[in-house]
Design a binder for these strands. Structure first.
Length: 273
DNA sequence: CATATTCCCTGGGTGC
DNA sequence: TGCACCCAGGGAATAT
């Protein structure tokens, strides 16, 4: 499941590979991925346009084509592959961008959860979801007090609050489990129960975990590859996520898997209070 | 307003 | 081997 580090890796890889390419055609195999507009408008907005740059905020990608911007969210299993236009369209390739140099960018998504939308340049961050995104842990204004202000009155579990993109943009299920483990905080504790000091520890660990994961190219679990066949290496650094039944590195007690806010959650019952 | 639930979708896993 | 069934999961829509 691509979270901030995986999306960052996808962005950097695609920047090297497709910036400067011009769209010759777009084939839409599964149109429901496209939000808020009909497929013909989607195609017409891109044909003839040249990709200028690619940016990322939270888990969203922004493909800048000059006067329009293509926003993409990979959700669970979305990935991009760069192929020759001569290669046949395979199962789960839902949208194919044909470039004038006979290469193609293919959006592949087994679960069909990903979304795409074309927005006029300058308004791409105003659409549903994106407009409400909170700060990224690397933003200068992602301060301890910013985070504390968002959580200190809440009765929701701290795990759910950290997963909430309106509070912290970019964290997903894997990294939230790791952040809570490193912070020694039980994922079920409510926001109002978390102290200012603990909030500072959480904020620091958000940055530490994401920074390390970006350097390692993200996390590859369950045969997930971020894009273009790339394999991340952060899975070797995981302390708790997917580790149920294995001994905790700090105390040796066994990692448990529970549900918090409807999400599978891994934690150390001794180290996380 | 805050929080909880439902829905989207399919491969993989389970049980028979 | 095949089949029915259930589940995971990010985020938007809907309900409480």
């Amino acid at each position: 499941m691509p979270e901030l580090p995986e999306v960052e890796t996808v962005k950097e890889t695609l920047k090297r590979q497709i910036i400067g390419k011009t769209v010759a055609d777009v084939k839409i195999v599964y149109g429901k991925l496209i939000r808020n507009q009909d497929p013909n408008h989607f195609k017409a907005a891109l044909i003839g346009k040249t990709l200028q740059k690619i940016e990322r905020y939270g888990k969203y990608l922004f493909f800048d084509f000059g006067d329009v911007v293509l926003t993409v969210h990979l959700r669970m299993e979305g990935k991009f592959f760069l192929k020759s236009q001569d290669e046949p369209i395979v199962k789960h390739e839902h949208i194919i961008f044909y470039f004038t140099d006979r290469s193609t960018l293919r959006y592949h998504d087994v679960r069909k959860f990903g979304t795409m939308e074309i927005m006029p340049a300058g308004s791409e961050r105003l659409s549903t979801g994106i407009a409400k995104l909170g700060k990224e842990p690397f933003d200068s204004d992602f301060t301890d007090s910013y985070l504390y202000d968002k959580i200190y009155k809440s009765t929701r579990p701290i795990k759910s609050l950290l997963l909430d993109q309106e509070i912290v943009a970019g964290l997903g299920n894997i990294y939230v489990d790791e952040v809570l483990y490193l912070s020694g905080i039980d994922p079920r504790r409510t926001g109002k129960d978390v102290t200012m000091v603990e909030t500072g520890i959480l904020a620091n660990n958000c940055r530490a975990v994401l920074k390390k994961a970006i350097i390692l190219g993200g996390t590859t679990i369950r045969s997930y590859t971020s894009s273009l066949g790339i394999t991340g290496r952060f899975q070797n650094e995981l302390n708790v996520h997917t580790k149920n039944g294995l001994p905790c590195h700090k105390c040796g007690s066994l990692i448990e898997k529970i549900k918090v806010g409807g999400r599978g959650t891994y934690y150390c019952p001794l180290c996380q209070k």
